[in-house]
């Protein structure tokens, strides 16, 4: 098991490196001009060259990748205008436009996104699994049809439309902005509740359908019939025998979804004004802010490979037949 995890971590690292190199390549292949953006409309060639030099943009791209990777692992020094500044590992450089270390920006933005995504997950897992289980048990009834219909309607709305609708009409929800959980948990929760409901309800639709399908399959299994033949009460048959088996596939989807939501919380963040990873990335895009972009790519790819690993490890607890190795 430990050896397996080690192997997986090694392969995860290589995935992250490939992702970073690919992002670098894409950035330099695209017609980007970060120095020009910083320099502004009244730019002189000397000033442009100065800026390029201070951002290390004058170096060949391969060298830039090299020093970036070095910074990630052991840290690096930046020289700008004769002043040398040391950037500790993991160093992701300085934002071109904000002048702050990317690591610091990510450290501020990540907890916001994580709070949104985890809180939303609590909502959609509980609503989705409960609704899916109930619908599966009453398969074919009006209640089941209404449930499935509702999920289809909710799912056919683009996510940002749903979020806008909540923002426009659910004005009774607190709008206190983001506060750190460590400073004030109550204020933290009240600032996030609208985002949680939006993310939660939109995804609850999909999770209702996953759970319903998984539950219908599991309730048709022979072991459910065995449980009934033992005289096990109906409720216990459904929840202990049926749901237990139905949750494994749902857990797989959840792990992957969680990783994607961490990198795709942009709509939720911008509509509810929460300064998370999505907002940071969007701003970096608009301003050709390569270090910040790379930083969020890094966080996203780490989240993805980490969630994949966690799902696989969770499987050994969910399903005793699974042995990693």
């Amino acid at each position: 098991m430990l050896l397996y995890i080690l192997k997986r971590i090694v392969s995860a690292i290589s995935v992250v490196i490939v992702t970073l190199v690919a992002s670098f390549a894409l950035f330099f292949l695209a017609p980007t001009d970060p120095a020009g953006v910083i320099c502004g409309p009244r730019c002189t060639p000397t000033r442009l060259a100065d800026i390029e030099q201070s951002l290390n943009l004058d170096e060949p791209p391969l060298e830039q990748i090299g020093s970036y990777m070095k910074g990630l692992v052991v840290g690096r020094d930046f020289t700008s205008g004769g002043v040398t500044q040391h950037c500790d590992a993991p160093c992701m450089g300085y934002s071109y436009t904000l002048g702050q270390p990317v690591t610091k920006l990510l450290k501020q933005a990540f907890p916001v996104t994580l709070s949104i995504v985890l809180g939303g997950a609590v909502v959609y897992l509980s609503v989705g699994i409960l609704a899916g289980t109930i619908a599966a048990q009453r398969r074919g009834t009006t209640l089941d049809k209404v449930t499935v219909g509702t999920t289809l309607v909710v799912n056919s709305f683009p996510y940002f439309v749903l979020a806008l609708l909540v923002a426009l009409y659910a004005t009774f929800l607190p709008q206190t902005g983001y506060h750190s959980f460590l400073d004030n948990p109550l204020l933290w929760a009240s600032g996030l509740v609208a985002a949680w409901l939006t993310l939660g309800l939109a995804n609850a639709a999909a999770y209702t359908r996953y759970s319903r399908a998984s539950m219908i399959e599991s309730l048709g299994q022979d072991f459910v019939r065995t449980a009934r033949s033992k005289g096990v009460p109906h409720r216990r048959v459904v929840y202990r025998h049926g749901l237990r088996a139905a949750l494994t596939p749902v857990a797989t989807i959840f792990g992957i979804d969680l990783a994607f939501q961490l990198t795709n919380a942009i709509f939720t963040e911008s509509i509810f004004g929460l300064p998370g990873l999505g907002m940071l990335t969007l701003r970096a895009f608009a301003q050709y802010d390569l270090p910040t972009l790379l930083g969020s790519v890094f966080v996203g790819s780490v989240a993805l490979v980490l969630m994949n690993l966690l799902v696989d490890i969770a499987y050994t607890f969910l399903d005793p037949r699974v042995r990693l190795g």
């Binding site: 022979d222 065995t226 033949s229 033992k230 005289g231 096990v232 237990r244 399903d319």
Partner: peptide, 27 residues
């Protein structure tokens, strides 16, 4: 009733099924 059947099943009558692999809960 389902409730009366639950207390009957397994006590007065029990059943063995064809495929023990799928009839036992894997978890």
């Amino acid at each position: 009733s389902e409730r009366a059947l639950e207390s009957y099943r397994g006590v007065d009558a029990a059943m063995i099924f064809q495929d023990p692999q799928s009839s036992l809960h894997p978890y």
